[in-house]
């Protein structure tokens, strides 16, 4: 049964004229008839070149942006505004620099459960601090945390709200490669523990295969669309070290890379 449905989403952006201030009436079609059905508990990844429109798609699902045509249905209801049922994990972390790690998460918990008293809010916050391995860092402000620790806070904040769908917008792009692997495994652990549904966009092929149940391949804009969906038939739990020896891994990787290389020449996929 479909839990999250992306139904024929098309997005036109107005083209700006020379002064950049107003539209001259022409539009640029970023997404064209994008449809995707996601089941409950599924981890689905959209992969494509930088600037192909995959982040626009994520913003439309999050409600930050509206599609020109089509719509998003989540758990039987159409959604077109941001809400607590869809938490975003940002590439830029988007943590409030004036709040400690703990208070960043607490802000979200308080917003998600307005009826809870302070003790319950703190307990819940602490639970996700512990789950994401943030013990010892909860009293620090984001400025004093490494990129990896910041994104742990970002993930803890998103999971703590217990949303219906988690939207990950290239969450590991600003984290060094070694830390990235560790946090990816923590994400998978959290995902299976909480039975969340995850929609991620990335341009990292290995990341997509390691984490996803399904990978949606996106063509370049203008008029970007989902070209095909690949099932990742690799049993879980997966680990970075062992899956690279599997023939299925090599097959998927080559397939995705081949697809990305045939898509335009302006960007090369990260390998």
């Amino acid at each position: 049964m479909d839990y999250l449905t992306i139904d024929h989403v098309t997005k036109h952006f107005p083209l700006l004229n020379g002064s950049g201030s107003s539209s001259n009436g022409k539009t640029f079609c970023v997404l064209k008839n994008v449809s995707l059905r996601v089941s409950k508990g599924e981890f689905i990844t959209t992969i494509g070149h930088s600037g192909c429109g995959k982040s626009t798609l994520l913003n439309i699902i999050a409600g930050f942006d509206k599609g020109s045509e089509g719509g998003i249905v989540l758990d039987g209801k159409e959604v077109d505004q941001p809400g607590l049922d869809r938490m975003v994990v940002f590439q830029s972390f988007a943590l409030m620099p004036w709040l400690t790690a703990f208070n960043n998460i607490r802000l979200a918990v308080k917003a998600a459960y307005p009826s809870w008293d302070e003790t319950k809010v703190r307990e819940h916050t602490q639970k996700y601090i512990d789950l994401m391995g943030l013990k010892g860092a909860e009293g620090k402000r984001p400025t004093f945390l490494s990129g990896g620790m910041r994104q742990r806070v970002g993930l803890a904040r998103a999971f703590a709200v217990e949303p219906k769908v988690l939207l990950l917008d290239e969450p590991f792009a600003q984290i060094d490669a070694l830390t990235r692997g560790v946090i990816q495994e923590e994400l998978i652990r959290m995902w299976s523990a909480t039975q969340s549904t995850v929609f991620m966009v990335t341009h990292d092929v290995d990341e997509a295969i390691l984490l996803s149940d399904r990978i949606a391949l996106m063509t370049n804009s203008p008029e970007a669309k989902i070209a095909e969906c690949l099932d990742v038939n690799i049993p879980r739990p997966r680990s970075r070290a062992t899956i690279i020896d599997l023939p299925e891994y090599t097959r998927l990787r080559n397939h995705v890379l081949h697809f990305l290389m045939t898509q335009g020449s302006e960007g090369k996929p990260e390998t």
Binding site: A62, G63, F64, Q81, P82, G83, L84, R86, M87, V88, F90, S92, A94, M96, L107, A108, A111, A112, V161
Partner: peptide, 21 residues
């Protein structure tokens, strides 16, 4: 920064809470 405001809208903060927090 736009992402701070996006977080505020995800969390459905009321106008006053958004202003203050």
């Amino acid at each position: 920064r736009k992402d701070y405001l996006q977080v505020a809208s995800l969390l459905q903060l009321s106008w006053w809470r958004r202003l203050l927090t």
